[in-house]
Write a protein that binds this DNA or RNA. Sequence first.
DNA 1: TATTGTTATACTCTATAACTATA
DNA 2: TATAGTTATAGAGTATAACAATA
Lengths: 131, 131
Amino acid sequence: MVGYVVRRAKVWIFQDVRRTLKGLDVTPAQFSVMKIVGANPGLAQARVAEALFIERARLVQMLDRLEARGLIGRTRSARDRRSHALHLTEEGARLLAHLEQLLEVHERNLVTRLGPKSKSELLRILAPFAR
Amino acid sequence: MVGYVVRRAKVWIFQDVRRTLKGLDVTPAQFSVMKIVGANPGLAQARVAEALFIERARLVQMLDRLEARGLIGRTRSARDRRSHALHLTEEGARLLAHLEQLLEVHERNLVTRLGPKSKSELLRILAPFAR
DNA sequence: TATTGTTATACTCTATAACTATA
DNA sequence: TATAGTTATAGAGTATAACAATA
């Protein structure tokens, strides 16, 4: 029952994000990668994967795509030569800012759907899942 | 931010359900189909798809599998010969009862994770997504 | 020994479009 | 014309396992 409603909410939210970003060729998952890398330049791939609950293996392909589009860069870390330090390119940072602006519409859609106070309540209740 | 935490919760819940049902070869989605059909015998495929937010096309393959395993039956509806009336077989009903019993463990895991009162709050807040 | 990035495989799921048979 | 079930396809995501380079 809880699983059902949480899944329904997740599907609705992701569909609304996709609709909002229509035509920009950015999935919700790609957005989340850009956002976390933007906020934490130098982060290693394994850290991003952990933070986003994405498989390490899956992230590789996502980064391949983002790198090919010139949005994200990988550079060998000096301290630990196994790992890649990730950073947004200038274009990546520009796109991210644009996406965040567009997503304000989604944010409003969500609050409309949930009712005014529920967003913060929801974040509080689900906090145990955000680690 | 909301999308992030809702997805994390969804992933955790589904993983926990999979863990709980380990070895029985039943996915969370299959369980939900069996449950809704069990509670509403005679339901048409399109209704199930709507209720569960699953694509009509996807449901076809899920039902093929469940039918092949002898858990669910499809019979042509007398009233509308386009549609299939779905029902659990005896074995399907037996398995469903077993699954529901097993999932009480998951239910307890979830409440432990969320804290005691949060489950009902969560259901109330997310009610707009349950239609 | 353990971790990082990578490749690979199989399966599930989502999003679409089109087809047929019925209504 | 619309709906129910079906088939098909492309891409996204999940779950695993293995490997080379590095720690």
